[in-house]
Amino acid sequence: MISNSAFIHQSSYIDDSCDIGNGTKIWHFVHVLEHTKIGANCVLGQNVMAGPHVTIGDGCKVQNNVALYRGVTLERDVFCGPSCVFTNVLMPRAHVERKDEFGETLVKQGATIGANATIVCGNTLGEFCMIAAGAVVTRNVPDYALMAGIPAKRIGWVSRSGDRLSDELICPRTGERYAEDGDNLMLIKE
Results as ranks from 00 to 15, higher is better:
76 R>G: 04
76 R>A: 15
77 D>A: 06
79 F>D: 02
80 C>R: 05
81 G>M: 01
82 P>W: 08
82 P>Q: 13
83 S>Q: 15
85 V>F: 02
86 F>R: 00
86 F>A: 05
86 F>M: 06
87 T>A: 09
87 T>M: 01
88 N>R: 05
89 V>C: 02
89 V>K: 01
91 M>G: 01
92 P>D: 05
93 R>G: 06
93 R>L: 11
93 R>H: 14
95 H>E: 15
95 H>V: 14
97 E>T: 03
98 R>N: 11
99 K>N: 14
100 D>S: 12
101 E>N: 10
104 E>L: 12
105 T>Q: 11
107 V>M: 04
107 V>R: 03
107 V>W: 02
107 V>Y: 00
108 K>W: 06
108 K>P: 10
108 K>G: 02
109 Q>G: 04
110 G>H: 10
111 A>H: 04
111 A>M: 07
112 T>M: 14
114 G>W: 09
114 G>L: 08
115 A>K: 08
115 A>S: 15
117 A>T: 06
118 T>P: 12
118 T>R: 09
119 I>M: 14
121 C>F: 12
123 N>C: 15
123 N>S: 12
123 N>Y: 08
124 T>C: 04
125 L>H: 08
126 G>H: 03
127 E>L: 08
127 E>Y: 09
128 F>A: 00
129 C>G: 02
129 C>K: 04
130 M>Q: 05
131 I>W: 13
132 A>C: 04
133 A>K: 12
133 A>R: 13
134 G>F: 06
136 V>C: 11
136 V>A: 13
136 V>N: 05
137 V>L: 09
138 T>P: 07
138 T>K: 09
140 N>F: 07
141 V>S: 06
143 D>F: 01
144 Y>C: 02
146 L>H: 10
146 L>D: 07
147 M>C: 06
148 A>K: 14
149 G>A: 06
149 G>M: 09
149 G>V: 01
151 P>C: 11
151 P>I: 11
152 A>Q: 12
154 R>Q: 15
158 V>I: 10
158 V>K: 02
159 S>Q: 11
159 S>T: 06
160 R>A: 05
160 R>Y: 07
160 R>L: 00
160 R>G: 01
161 S>V: 03
162 G>W: 03
162 G>I: 03
163 D>W: 07
164 R>I: 14
165 L>F: 14
165 L>W: 13
166 S>R: 10
166 S>T: 15
168 E>M: 09
168 E>P: 07
168 E>I: 08
171 C>Y: 04
